[in-house]
């Protein structure tokens, strides 16, 4: 007797799959349509994430190239600090914090890692002033440190980072008239395509430079040193933007790759459920027909 035997099988197909629920019931005819709608939307998402991944991977090579020259430049520009032994004087003057993030999301923990480091720094230095590059870090940081924010910049490094852009940003920061002892640039240092480090790089004011122990070895005039401070601020901001951009693109690529993989898995499971419930519906219809035929 077909009808009697097939009933429990239908039941097990319908209820015995708690793993493939996806928030939709896998029970009757109505769900068949729901599943197909969901299947379609997931495969559309997969298409989007896949193309985003492709875009990010082309951008990551470009950003990496820019980052490498910027890193050489930044290291060379700040080599003076190592030679003079300049250090931060915690007592005098308030520190300035420059957070280098961006406007775009969908790139893993890049921005929240910046905010976390910044919050940690701010809790140790509550008097610090904040300058924020990029909307993401702004949105995260203005929740609890709104009063400390002095200036923010949107749409930073829309394309590849340029020095001119960094110089303008540095100039705007200086125009706010903050008297800082040390400007701490917080950015994501690019380690490899799968890893980044959130680091704090100091830019010392010329006063701090004047007080450094080994500056007397150098032949330098005061106005030149003041110019050097402003130049170094611009350089380090540029360095931070370049490194942050490379890290962001690499993180985006990884995030999008994972998203595509997850969507693929979801499609597979949904297809399975779809086919099972289709089969179950057919079986049900067969039972109806056969029972009807037997009753006649």
């Amino acid at each position: 007797m077909l009808a009697v035997r097939s009933l429990p099988r239908v039941a097990s197909a319908a209820t015995g799959q708690p793993a493939i629920s996806f928030g939709v019931q896998t029970r009757n005819m109505a769900t068949l349509k729901e599943i197909s709608v969901r299947l379609k939307s997931v495969s559309n998402i997969a298409k989007i994430t896949k193309s985003m991944k492709m875009i990010a991977s082309t951008k990551v090579t470009k950003a990496q190239r820019v980052m490498e020259t910027a890193r050489v430049y930044g290291n060379s520009a700040t080599a003076l600090y190592q030679h003079t032994g300049t250090s931060t004087n915690e007592e005098s003057g308030k520190p300035l914090v420059v957070v280098v993030s961006s406007d775009r999301g969908l790139c893993g923990g890049i921005h929240s890692s910046l905010s976390k480091t910044t919050r940690k720094y701010l809790s140790a230095h509550p008097e610090a002033a904040l300058a924020i590059l990029g909307q993401k870090a702004k949105a995260q940081l203005q929740r609890d440190s709104r009063q400390q924010i002095v200036v923010t910049f949107d749409s930073v490094a829309k394309n590849l980072p340029t020095w001119t852009e960094a110089a303008l940003i540095a100039d705007e920061i200086l125009k706010t008239g903050i008297e800082f002892e040390t400007a701490n640039i917080i950015y994501n240092k690019f380690k490899s395509v799968i890893a980044f480090d959130t680091v704090i790089v100091p830019v010392h004011s010329y006063k701090a430079l004047l007080e450094s122990p080994k500056l007397s070895a150098y032949e330098v005039e005061d106005p030149v040193l003041k110019n050097y401070e402003e130049f170094t601020l611009a350089n380090t901001v540029f360095w931070g933007i370049a490194e942050g951009n490379a890290s962001e693109m690499a993180a985006k690529r990884t995030a999008m790759e994972n998203a595509t993989k997850n969507a693929g898995e979801m499609i597979q499971k949904l297809t399975l459920t779809y086919n099972r419930s289709r089969q179950a519906t057919i079986t049900n219809e067969l039972i109806d027909i056969i029972t009807g035929a037997m009753a006649v």
Binding site: T69, V72, Y73, A77, T162, W163, A166, V224, N235, F238
Partner: peptide
């Protein structure tokens, strides 16, 4: 000598004999 630009590294840690340049001084 290291001679760098923001977008290009012209010379990186190269041994040279002499460099002439014009500074503000």
């Amino acid at each position: 000598l290291s001679f760098t630009l923001p977008h290009q590294t012209l010379l990186s840690d190269v041994e040279v004999t002499q460099v002439n340049l014009s500074s503000s001084e």
